[in-house]
Design a protein around this nucleic acid. Structure first.
Length: 906
RNA sequence: GGACGUUUAGCUCAGUUGGUUAGAGCGUUCGAUUCACAUUCGAAAGGUCGCAGGUUCGAAUCCUGCAACGUCCACCA
């Protein structure tokens, strides 16, 4: 039974609807109807979720928003393509699998299994994740083209990666070199600057005697090799020391020769204004050392143990060494002071959270400030062969407004990031990912500082048996940076038509937290490779937080999982709760109560539809039976369908306003506002007003069908499941998802009648209120008096007695010449209605209330009058505003007059 | 240290180029209820728009300063 007594049960219909959509082929742009084939292309690539397990609320937001836009544009007749895919997420996935294996009892999975076996495990896990993720994407109702599903590590994407690497290498943008990098001893790999997370920590801050100086440090365990003592060149306290001056000082393992260095990097205010440096393990120190051509010595190995330079502390782990070094220095009388409350920031790895130890290592870098010759005309600004830098490309894209970032303020953040961007370290010492397509001749030393060109080849295949491939893999963002064009088949020449058709893509929608990681790198990679932008708009959504505004995390136990919520409330409700009530770039709080509210709305829409369909069914059977002579007030009066009532015109007019406004809002990414407006119309105007009237007027088969269909179309991008389901239940042709997005309905506008309706609507509301306050009794008679007589209005009221009765619950209406002084009146615009007051009204209370209202009205009038007397206001304000105000004044005066007369009669 | 964001009803948040009695949802209170929907309907209460100045005929909106909270960035040993 389709229209049972049950509420809408999302979980029982959603899977089947999704299967039907998928089977229809309409997710695939090539299989869309003719209308779309002729339309312009609209392409969005899905930010590929990491293959690290399951989706979370952030993914749900992006899926909801992107599906909304895709469905909207598809209905508008565009040739829409939404490409789904997943990301191998190199480090994240490898770490996850390693942790799992360790839980199963392995001590060091990589060592125990070896590269090949270990990778098998990771690949198997990634495969499994991918299946789960795809299921979840479907659960959200995403209308993406599964026939074009991509994976950052699949064969075609790997080809793109190798190709871009090769191009950049040839252009001198990719370079191998020994520089100071972020080393993570936990995962045994280098990470990029953006993957470092700084955490505040309270640690003891030590001050030691270092020759004639006092130096401060929170890391004494790194200080073995500190043979340079640095101070600011303008520091008057140390003027007697000269740059390069050498002095012998007593240090941890005996006397060492220290050299004085003057450098402006030193903060004179901090501590004593003197510091020693550890160039191998500190970014700042490294830069100072570079400036002065100082020697650099490694103190800590890649596992965090001290090297022979530490003397008796050799092989000791740095954690253990700290206290011991302090003790030794204390014994030697070199410890000056300890500040236990020192707060500093330590670098940790965003994957796994272990400490980062800077190290000088030979790695691959992308040079972002090195000029290179463009391979093609680029961004409409540069010609082929022009010299530019990658930073310039990234900057130009946004300054020239070829890419718009929404909200706008992130543009500033983007520029700031570019300004501070250093060369991008792209090599990783992990196994899961794209192997660096570089081969070394076995006669060469891979670790050598410089390789002869003939000992190194960039190629995706082995040049021969004397060659071995670089053991490292690429940063995962290297491949995701190519995502908009690698997913469209680049560099395969056969795919170029598709690339030309869909690229640049229309929009990139993602969370602002990966603006640098991903968005910026896509811009870098795409402008470099293709000479064009990857997307026109960037829409950044906020992060989903819990009810109290905290980040959702496992340890807090406050995670709301879309997969738990969908069976409980339905996908449509979850989608709405993520889109309505949030603005771009702004974090949102999500609670189950909010989702519950939208579940209720889903059900409301279901009931509205159910009701409309039943009215249509009944009116059909009624007209079939040709029943005539029914009472006016009976609930289903058959009526000539063509004869439109004022209410019909009113609702169509409102619907038109909603259509144009919602369309405009969706075009400008105002999803929340669009959804709210639709909800208010659906619940307020349609359900609570028009349908109440329709119950009485009857015979609205045509218009009700028109309204319902339009409503379902408007809602479809927001809540695809329930609308598609209703469409099917109603027996309408075809699939809602490819229906044409509604244009404004053609109605004959009748401005005067519209005003009448608005007025009457207000009056009827007043009547309902009076009745609710028991000022008129349910069965008493209502008498209208048209004070400023308008025959048309009088006639209209006569014509529409039935629903006025219904809405006011009064039983009769009569017209009289004047309103008795003891009656209650309500008025609107040009006319007034009087009610025979119920005996239950407390005259004192009523009087008080009227007096209060009158006082408010009077003060409002005074303020308006004053304003209107103000010559400067009249002179300077636009006429529109003045006119508005005059009208308001008139209305207020009218209201005050009526209140006065009521007061006199009371 | 720098930049950005937030501060509007008890709670969560809108408020699109400044326009005149500041909105929604939830919650609260009161009332309704066979006749699509209690996942319902009607109504009410509730706001000096963070604070202090300024610009303007007019400011939640623009400017300056301050405060609280939050985020990002930065080499402070």
């Amino acid at each position: 039974m389709i229209f049972g007594f049950m509420a809408y049960d999302a979980s029982s219909v959603e899977d089947e609807i999704y299967r039907a959509w998928e089977a229809s082929g309409f997710f695939n742009p090539d299989k869309l109807p003719d209308r779309n084939q002729k339309g312009e292309s609209y392409c969005v690539v899905m930010p590929p979720p990491n293959r690290t397990g399951t989706l979370h609320m952030g993914h749900a937001v992006m899926l909801a928003i992107q599906d909304l836009l895709i469905r909207f544009e598809r209905m508008r007749g565009k040739k829409t393509l939404w490409i789904p895919g997943t990301d191998h997420a190199a480090i994240a996935t490898q770490v996850k699998v390693e942790q799992m294996l360790m839980k199963e009892g392995m001590k060091n999975p990589r060592e125990e299994l070896g590269r090949e076996k270990f990778l098998e495990k990771v690949v198997a896990f990634a495969e499994e994740s991918s299946k789960t993720i795809n299921k979840q994407i479907r659960k959200m109702g995403s209308s993406c083209d599964w026939s074009r599903e991509r994976y950052t590590l699949d064969e075609a994407r790997s080809r793109a990666v190798n190709e871009v690497f090769k191009m950049m290498y040839e252009d001198g943008l990719i370079e191998r070199g020994a520089r100071i990098v972020n080393w993570d001893p936990n995962t045994q790999t280098v990470v990029s600057d953006d993957e470092v997370v700084w955490v505040e920590e309270k640690a003891p801050f030590f001050e030691f005697q270092y020759g004639p100086f006092v130096i401060g440090t929170s890391r004494p365990e790194t200080k073995f090799g500190d043979k340079y003592v640095v101070m600011h060149p303008d520091d008057t306290r140390y003027q007697k020391y000269q740059q390069g001056e050498k002095l012998t000082v007593e240090w941890i393992n005996g006397p060492i020769e220290a050299t004085i260095i003057k450098d402006e990097a030193v903060d004179r205010e901090f501590g004593t204004g003197v510091m020693t440096i550890t160039p191998w393990h500190d970014m700042t120190d490294f830069e100072i050392a570079e400036r002065h051509h100082l020697t650099k010595e490694q103190v800590i190995d890649l596992h965090g143990n001290l090297l022979p330079i530490a003397g008796e502390f050799e092989s000791m782990h740095i954690k253990e060494a700290r206290q011991k070094v302090v003790e030794k220095l204390k014994k030697k009388g070199l410890l000056v002071n300890i500040n236990e409350n020192y707060i500093h920031r330590i670098a940790t790895c965003s994957r796994g959270g272990g400490m980062i130890e800077p190290q000088i290592l030979k790695q691959w870098f992308i040079r972002v400030t090195k000029p290179f010759a463009l391979r093609q005309d680029t961004l409409g600004k540069w010609k082929k062969g022009d010299q530019v830098t990658l930073k310039e490309l990234m900057r130009e894209v946004v300054t020239s407004k070829q890419v718009t970032i929404i909200p706008e303020r992130f543009e500033k953040i983007y520029f700031h990031w570019i300004d501070h961007l250093r060369d991008w370290c792209i090599s990783r010492q992990i196994w899961f990912g794209h192997r660096i397509p570089v081969w070394y001749h076995h006669s060469s030393q891979v670790s050598a500082d410089s390789l002869q060109p003939d000992k190194m080849i960039v190629s995706d295949t082995s040049p021969g048996k004397d060659w071995q491939q670089d053991p490292d893999t690429l940063d995962t963002w290297f491949s995701s940076g190519l995502w908009t064009f690698s997913t469209l088949g680049w560099p395969d020449k056969k795919e170029w038509s598709s690339l030309r058709q869909y690229h640049p893509t229309a929009l990139l929608e993602t969370g602002y937290d990966i603006l640098f990681f991903w968005v910026a790198r896509m811009i870098l990679m795409t402008t470099y490779t293709l000479g064009e932008i990857p997307f026109k708009d960037v829409y950044l959504h906020g992060l989903v937080r819990d009810e109290q505004g905290r980040k959702m995390s496992k340890s807090l136990g406050n995670i709301l999982d879309p997969l738990d919520l969908i069976p409980k409330y339905g996908t449509d409700a979850v989608r709405l709760s993520l889109m309505i009530g949030s603005t771009p770039g702004q974090d949102t709080r999500l609670s189950e109560a909010k989702i519950e509210g939208f579940r209720n709305f889903t059900n409301k829409l279901w009931n509205i539809s159910r009701f409309i369909l039943s009215v249509i069914a009944r009116s059909e059977s009624a007209s079939d039976a040709a029943i005539s002579g029914q009472e006016v007030a009976s609930s289903m009066t058959p009526r000539n369908d063509k004869q439109q009532t004022l209410a019909d015109i009113w609702i169509q007019h409102r619907l038109n306003q909603v259509i144009s406004s919602v369309t405009k809002k969706l075009e400008t990414y105002q999803f929340s506002s669009a959804g709210e407006e639709l909800r208010d119309f659906t619940w307020g105007d349609l359900a609570d007003w028009y349908l109440e009237i329709a119950k009485i007027e009857g015979g609205k088969k045509y218009i009700l069908t028109q309204i319902l269909q339009t409503l379902l179309k408007l809602w479809h991008p927001f809540m695809p499941f329930v609308t598609e389901h209703i469409w099917k239940v109603a027996g309408y042709d075809g699939m809602l998802m490819i229906e044409k997005w509604p244009d404004e309905l053609r109605i004959t506008h009748d401005a005067l009648r519209m005003t009448e309706f608005d007025s009457l609507q207000r009056v009827v509301m007043d009547m309902r209120r009076l009745r609710a306050e028991q000022k008129i009794e349910p069965a008493m008679s209502i008498t209208f008096q048209i004070i400023i007589a308008d025959d048309r209005l009088k006639k209209w009221i006569g014509d529409n007695q039935a629903w006025i009765h219904r809405l006011t619950k009064a039983t009769s209406i009569e017209f009289i010449k004047s309103i008795p002084s003891d009656w209650v009146t309500v008025s609107s615009g040009s006319w007034t209605i009087g009610f025979n007051p119920a005996t239950s009204i407390d005259p004192e209370k009523e009087r008080g209330k009227i007096e209060k209202e009158l006082a408010e009205a009077t003060s409002y009038i005074t303020s308006l009058e004053q304003k209107l007397k103000d010559k400067e206001f009249i002179k300077k304000a636009p006429p529109r505003i003045v006119e508005d105000m005059k009208n308001k004044l008139q209305e207020a005066q009218e209201k005050a007059r009526l209140l006065k007369s009521r007061l006199n009669s009371a």
